[in-house]
Protein backbone atom coordinates (compact mmCIF):
# COMPACT_ATOMS: atom_id res chain seq x y z
CA UNK A 1 0.00 0.00 0.00
CA UNK A 2 2.70 2.42 1.05
CA UNK A 3 4.73 1.57 -1.99
CA UNK A 4 1.80 2.18 -4.23
CA UNK A 5 1.30 5.64 -2.77
CA UNK A 6 4.90 6.63 -3.39
CA UNK A 7 4.71 5.21 -6.86
CA UNK A 8 1.60 7.19 -7.54
CA UNK A 9 3.11 10.39 -6.25
CA UNK A 10 6.23 9.91 -8.33
CA UNK A 11 4.25 9.36 -11.46
CA UNK A 12 2.01 12.30 -10.60
CA UNK A 13 4.90 14.73 -10.49
CA UNK A 14 6.09 13.50 -13.88
CA UNK A 15 2.83 14.78 -15.35
CA UNK A 16 3.99 18.33 -14.63
CA UNK A 17 5.99 18.04 -17.81
CA UNK A 18 2.73 18.06 -19.79
CA UNK A 19 1.59 21.24 -18.10
CA UNK A 20 4.83 23.03 -18.82
CA UNK A 21 4.05 24.42 -22.32
CA UNK A 22 0.62 25.60 -21.20
CA UNK A 23 1.91 27.31 -18.09
CA UNK A 24 4.80 28.88 -19.94
CA UNK A 25 2.44 30.25 -22.60
CA UNK A 26 0.05 31.51 -19.96
CA UNK A 27 2.86 33.31 -18.19
CA UNK A 28 3.93 35.07 -21.41
CA UNK A 29 0.46 35.91 -22.71
CA UNK A 30 -1.50 36.58 -19.52
CA UNK A 31 0.62 36.60 -16.36
CA UNK A 32 3.41 38.99 -17.30
CA UNK A 33 1.24 41.38 -19.38
CA UNK A 34 -1.31 41.51 -16.56
CA UNK A 35 1.34 42.48 -14.00
CA UNK A 36 2.92 44.92 -16.46
CA UNK A 37 -0.44 46.59 -16.91
CA UNK A 38 -0.92 47.00 -13.18
CA UNK A 39 2.64 48.32 -12.88
CA UNK A 40 2.13 50.83 -15.69
CA UNK A 41 -1.08 52.07 -14.06
CA UNK A 42 1.10 53.64 -11.32
CA UNK A 43 3.18 55.54 -13.85
CA UNK A 44 3.00 58.27 -16.39
CA UNK A 45 4.11 56.77 -19.68
CA UNK A 46 3.85 57.74 -23.34
CA UNK A 47 4.67 54.25 -24.60
CA UNK A 48 8.36 55.04 -25.21
CA UNK A 49 11.23 55.71 -22.84
CA UNK A 50 11.08 55.04 -19.13
CA UNK A 51 7.73 55.17 -17.35
CA UNK A 52 7.71 57.76 -14.57
CA UNK A 53 6.34 56.55 -11.23
CA UNK A 54 3.42 58.70 -10.10
CA UNK A 55 1.89 56.56 -7.37
CA UNK A 56 -1.89 56.66 -7.25
CA UNK A 57 -2.21 59.80 -9.35
CA UNK A 58 -3.88 58.00 -12.26
CA UNK A 59 -6.46 56.46 -9.96
CA UNK A 60 -7.13 59.77 -8.25
CA UNK A 61 -7.73 61.32 -11.64
CA UNK A 62 -9.90 58.41 -12.63
CA UNK A 63 -12.21 58.87 -9.68
CA UNK A 64 -12.62 62.53 -10.54
CA UNK A 65 -13.16 61.83 -14.25
CA UNK A 66 -16.83 62.16 -15.12
CA UNK A 67 -16.25 60.32 -18.42
CA UNK A 68 -15.18 57.24 -16.46
CA UNK A 69 -18.33 57.26 -14.34
CA UNK A 70 -20.38 57.77 -17.45
CA UNK A 71 -18.73 54.71 -19.01
CA UNK A 72 -19.65 52.68 -15.93
CA UNK A 73 -23.26 53.82 -16.18
CA UNK A 74 -23.30 52.66 -19.78
CA UNK A 75 -21.90 49.33 -18.64
CA UNK A 76 -24.89 48.92 -16.35
CA UNK A 77 -27.10 49.61 -19.33
CA UNK A 78 -25.24 46.94 -21.33
CA UNK A 79 -25.75 44.43 -18.55
CA UNK A 80 -29.47 44.98 -19.05
CA UNK A 81 -29.17 44.79 -22.83
CA UNK A 82 -26.91 41.72 -22.90
CA UNK A 83 -27.73 39.74 -19.77
CA UNK A 84 -31.24 40.63 -18.62
CA UNK A 85 -33.33 41.26 -21.73
CA UNK A 86 -31.99 38.42 -23.94
CA UNK A 87 -32.29 35.99 -21.04
CA UNK A 88 -35.94 36.86 -20.46
CA UNK A 89 -36.79 36.70 -24.16
CA UNK A 90 -35.01 33.41 -24.73
CA UNK A 91 -36.47 31.81 -21.61
CA UNK A 92 -39.90 32.50 -23.01
CA UNK A 93 -39.02 31.48 -26.57
CA UNK A 94 -37.22 28.32 -25.42
CA UNK A 95 -40.19 27.23 -23.37
CA UNK A 96 -42.62 27.94 -26.23
CA UNK A 97 -40.43 25.91 -28.56
CA UNK A 98 -40.03 23.05 -26.11
CA UNK A 99 -43.41 22.91 -24.43
CA UNK A 100 -45.62 23.99 -27.34
CA UNK A 101 -44.08 23.85 -30.80
CA UNK A 102 -42.23 20.57 -30.51
CA UNK A 103 -45.32 18.96 -28.93
CA UNK A 104 -47.72 20.17 -31.59
CA UNK A 105 -45.61 20.57 -34.69
CA UNK A 106 -42.74 18.23 -34.00
CA UNK A 107 -39.11 18.44 -33.01
CA UNK A 108 -37.97 19.37 -36.50
CA UNK A 109 -39.72 22.72 -36.58
CA UNK A 110 -38.50 23.59 -33.14
CA UNK A 111 -34.90 22.86 -34.19
CA UNK A 112 -35.40 24.95 -37.29
CA UNK A 113 -36.45 27.99 -35.26
CA UNK A 114 -33.62 27.47 -32.84
CA UNK A 115 -31.06 27.41 -35.64
CA UNK A 116 -32.55 30.55 -37.22
CA UNK A 117 -32.57 32.54 -33.98
CA UNK A 118 -29.03 31.40 -33.29
CA UNK A 119 -27.51 32.68 -36.52
CA UNK A 120 -26.85 36.34 -35.51
CA UNK A 121 -24.91 35.10 -32.50
CA UNK A 122 -22.08 33.66 -34.57
CA UNK A 123 -21.55 36.70 -36.80
CA UNK A 124 -18.33 38.54 -36.06
CA UNK A 125 -19.36 41.57 -34.02
CA UNK A 126 -17.61 43.91 -36.39
CA UNK A 127 -19.68 42.50 -39.27
CA UNK A 128 -22.86 42.94 -37.24
CA UNK A 129 -21.70 46.48 -36.56
CA UNK A 130 -21.25 47.28 -40.25
CA UNK A 131 -24.62 45.74 -40.99
CA UNK A 132 -26.48 47.70 -38.33
CA UNK A 133 -24.50 50.87 -39.02
CA UNK A 134 -25.79 50.63 -42.56
CA UNK A 135 -29.36 50.16 -41.33
CA UNK A 136 -29.29 52.81 -38.60
CA UNK A 137 -27.33 55.67 -40.19
CA UNK A 138 -29.30 58.88 -40.93
CA UNK A 139 -29.73 57.95 -44.60
CA UNK A 140 -29.91 54.28 -43.78
CA UNK A 141 -32.39 51.54 -44.38
CA UNK A 142 -34.53 52.08 -41.29
CA UNK A 143 -35.19 55.75 -41.99
CA UNK A 144 -35.91 55.01 -45.66
CA UNK A 145 -38.45 52.40 -44.64
CA UNK A 146 -40.06 54.74 -42.11
CA UNK A 147 -40.40 57.48 -44.70
CA UNK A 148 -41.73 55.15 -47.35
CA UNK A 149 -44.42 53.81 -45.04
CA UNK A 150 -45.65 57.23 -43.97
CA UNK A 151 -43.99 57.08 -40.56
CA UNK A 152 -41.64 59.92 -41.44
CA UNK A 153 -42.29 61.46 -38.03
CA UNK A 154 -40.39 58.61 -36.41
CA UNK A 155 -37.23 59.14 -38.45
CA UNK A 156 -34.27 59.57 -36.14
CA UNK A 157 -30.52 59.85 -36.17
CA UNK A 158 -30.27 56.50 -34.45
CA UNK A 159 -26.54 56.43 -33.86
CA UNK A 160 -25.88 60.16 -33.97
CA UNK A 161 -28.35 61.43 -31.40
CA UNK A 162 -26.85 61.19 -27.88
CA UNK A 163 -30.17 60.07 -26.41
CA UNK A 164 -30.83 57.42 -29.05
CA UNK A 165 -27.33 56.08 -29.69
CA UNK A 166 -27.00 53.93 -26.59
CA UNK A 167 -30.49 52.54 -27.03
CA UNK A 168 -29.64 51.62 -30.62
CA UNK A 169 -26.39 49.89 -29.68
CA UNK A 170 -28.19 48.12 -26.82
CA UNK A 171 -30.86 46.95 -29.22
CA UNK A 172 -28.22 45.47 -31.52
CA UNK A 173 -26.71 43.65 -28.54
CA UNK A 174 -30.09 42.13 -27.68
CA UNK A 175 -30.37 40.96 -31.28
CA UNK A 176 -26.90 39.41 -31.10
CA UNK A 177 -27.28 37.75 -27.71
CA UNK A 178 -30.67 36.04 -27.93
CA UNK A 179 -29.32 33.03 -29.83
CA UNK A 180 -26.70 32.21 -27.22
CA UNK A 181 -29.03 31.95 -24.23
CA UNK A 182 -31.73 30.31 -26.32
CA UNK A 183 -29.50 27.44 -27.39
CA UNK A 184 -28.28 26.89 -23.85
CA UNK A 185 -31.82 26.90 -22.44
CA UNK A 186 -33.04 24.50 -25.11
CA UNK A 187 -30.18 22.17 -24.25
CA UNK A 188 -31.07 22.41 -20.58
CA UNK A 189 -34.70 21.60 -21.27
CA UNK A 190 -33.65 18.46 -23.10
CA UNK A 191 -32.72 16.88 -19.78
CA UNK A 192 -36.11 17.70 -18.18
CA UNK A 193 -38.40 14.71 -17.95
CA UNK A 194 -41.36 15.39 -20.29
CA UNK A 195 -43.68 13.47 -17.98
CA UNK A 196 -43.31 16.37 -15.55
CA UNK A 197 -45.03 18.61 -18.06
CA UNK A 198 -47.64 16.00 -18.90
CA UNK A 199 -48.51 15.39 -15.28
CA UNK A 200 -48.84 19.07 -14.47
CA UNK A 201 -50.92 19.61 -17.55
CA UNK A 202 -53.30 16.89 -16.49
CA UNK A 203 -53.51 18.66 -13.16
CA UNK A 204 -54.77 21.66 -15.06
CA UNK A 205 -51.63 23.81 -15.13
CA UNK A 206 -51.67 26.20 -18.07
CA UNK A 207 -48.65 27.17 -20.15
CA UNK A 208 -47.73 30.11 -17.94
CA UNK A 209 -47.97 28.03 -14.78
CA UNK A 210 -45.78 25.32 -16.28
CA UNK A 211 -43.37 28.05 -17.36
CA UNK A 212 -43.20 29.51 -13.86
CA UNK A 213 -43.25 26.35 -11.77
CA UNK A 214 -41.36 23.89 -13.96
CA UNK A 215 -39.30 25.57 -16.67
CA UNK A 216 -37.75 28.34 -14.57
CA UNK A 217 -36.79 26.15 -11.57
CA UNK A 218 -35.46 23.44 -13.88
CA UNK A 219 -33.29 25.89 -15.79
CA UNK A 220 -31.81 27.52 -12.71
CA UNK A 221 -28.26 26.22 -13.35
CA UNK A 222 -28.38 27.43 -16.95
CA UNK A 223 -29.79 30.79 -15.94
CA UNK A 224 -26.83 31.21 -13.61
CA UNK A 225 -24.27 30.25 -16.23
CA UNK A 226 -25.88 32.56 -18.78
CA UNK A 227 -26.18 35.34 -16.23
CA UNK A 228 -22.51 35.09 -15.34
CA UNK A 229 -21.11 34.78 -18.85
CA UNK A 230 -23.26 37.51 -20.40
CA UNK A 231 -22.69 39.91 -17.50
CA UNK A 232 -18.95 39.48 -17.88
CA UNK A 233 -19.31 39.96 -21.64
CA UNK A 234 -21.29 43.14 -20.98
CA UNK A 235 -18.46 44.52 -18.86
CA UNK A 236 -16.09 44.05 -21.78
CA UNK A 237 -18.15 45.45 -24.67
CA UNK A 238 -15.79 46.97 -27.18
CA UNK A 239 -16.25 46.07 -30.84
CA UNK A 240 -19.89 47.19 -31.26
CA UNK A 241 -19.10 50.59 -29.78
CA UNK A 242 -15.88 50.91 -31.78
CA UNK A 243 -17.58 50.03 -35.05
CA UNK A 244 -20.96 51.73 -34.68
CA UNK A 245 -20.38 54.91 -32.68
CA UNK A 246 -16.72 55.27 -31.70
CA UNK A 247 -17.88 56.03 -28.19
CA UNK A 248 -19.81 59.06 -29.35
CA UNK A 249 -21.71 61.20 -29.91
CA UNK A 250 -20.31 63.22 -27.03
CA UNK A 251 -19.31 60.11 -25.05
CA UNK A 252 -22.95 58.98 -25.12
CA UNK A 253 -21.89 55.37 -25.76
CA UNK A 254 -18.53 55.42 -24.01
CA UNK A 255 -17.69 52.14 -22.23
CA UNK A 256 -14.61 51.27 -20.12
CA UNK A 257 -13.05 49.09 -22.82
CA UNK A 258 -13.26 51.84 -25.39
CA UNK A 259 -12.14 54.38 -22.82
CA UNK A 260 -8.90 52.52 -22.07
CA UNK A 261 -8.33 51.73 -25.75
CA UNK A 262 -8.71 55.44 -26.52
CA UNK A 263 -6.09 56.40 -23.96
CA UNK A 264 -3.70 53.63 -25.00
CA UNK A 265 -3.69 54.36 -28.69
CA UNK A 266 -5.18 57.81 -29.32
CA UNK A 267 -4.06 60.10 -26.52
CA UNK A 268 -1.16 57.71 -25.71
CA UNK A 269 -1.61 58.29 -22.00
CA UNK A 270 -0.71 54.68 -21.39
CA UNK A 271 -0.55 54.94 -17.60
CA UNK A 272 -4.05 56.35 -17.44
CA UNK A 273 -5.39 53.76 -19.87
CA UNK A 274 -3.80 51.03 -17.75
CA UNK A 275 -5.52 52.42 -14.66
CA UNK A 276 -8.87 52.29 -16.44
CA UNK A 277 -8.22 48.69 -17.54
CA UNK A 278 -7.13 47.69 -14.04
CA UNK A 279 -10.24 49.19 -12.47
CA UNK A 280 -12.37 47.41 -15.07
CA UNK A 281 -10.62 44.13 -14.30
CA UNK A 282 -11.18 44.57 -10.55
CA UNK A 283 -14.89 45.17 -11.13
CA UNK A 284 -15.12 42.11 -13.37
CA UNK A 285 -13.44 39.83 -10.85
CA UNK A 286 -15.52 41.10 -7.92
CA UNK A 287 -18.72 40.67 -9.88
CA UNK A 288 -17.82 37.14 -10.99
CA UNK A 289 -16.90 36.22 -7.42
CA UNK A 290 -20.25 37.51 -6.14
CA UNK A 291 -22.05 35.55 -8.84
CA UNK A 292 -20.22 32.31 -8.03
CA UNK A 293 -20.77 32.84 -4.30
CA UNK A 294 -24.51 33.30 -4.78
CA UNK A 295 -24.57 30.26 -7.03
CA UNK A 296 -22.80 28.03 -4.52
CA UNK A 297 -25.17 29.22 -1.78
CA UNK A 298 -28.12 28.46 -4.00
CA UNK A 299 -26.96 24.93 -4.71
CA UNK A 300 -26.29 24.37 -1.01
CA UNK A 301 -29.83 25.44 -0.19
CA UNK A 302 -31.06 23.13 -2.91
CA UNK A 303 -29.21 20.24 -1.26
CA UNK A 304 -30.87 20.88 2.06
CA UNK A 305 -34.36 20.67 0.63
Amino acid sequence: MAMQTTLRRRSSSAYWLYLFPGLFGFLIVVGIPFLMNIGVSFTSWRGIGMPKFVGLANYARLIADSAFWMSLEHTLFFVVAMAVVPTLISLLVASVLFDYISVRFGQGLSSFFRAGYYLPQILPISVAGVLWGWILNPHGVLNMILEATGLGGLVGNWLGDPDLAILSVGFVMVWLQIGYSLVVFMAGLARVDPSLYEASELDGAGFLQRFWYITIPMLKPEIFVIGLTTTIAALKVFAPVYVMTNGGPNNATLVPSFFSFYHFFSTVRVGYGAAVATAQTAITIVLAAVFLWVQSRQTEEGDHD
Binding site: V29, V30, I32, P33, F34, M36, N37, I38, V40, I232, L235, K236, F238, P256, S257, S260, F261, F264, V270, G273, A274, V276, A277, T278, Q280, T281, T284, I285, A288
Partner: peptide, 10 residues
Protein backbone atom coordinates in the same frame (compact mmCIF):
# COMPACT_ATOMS: atom_id res chain seq x y z
CA UNK B 1 -12.31 36.26 -17.63
CA UNK B 2 -10.29 39.42 -17.23
CA UNK B 3 -10.91 42.05 -19.90
CA UNK B 4 -8.43 41.87 -22.78
CA UNK B 5 -7.93 45.61 -22.33
CA UNK B 6 -5.79 44.88 -19.31
CA UNK B 7 -3.46 42.76 -21.45
CA UNK B 8 -3.56 44.53 -24.77
CA UNK B 9 -1.04 47.29 -24.25
CA UNK B 10 1.65 45.08 -22.72
Amino acid sequence: MIPQESLVYP
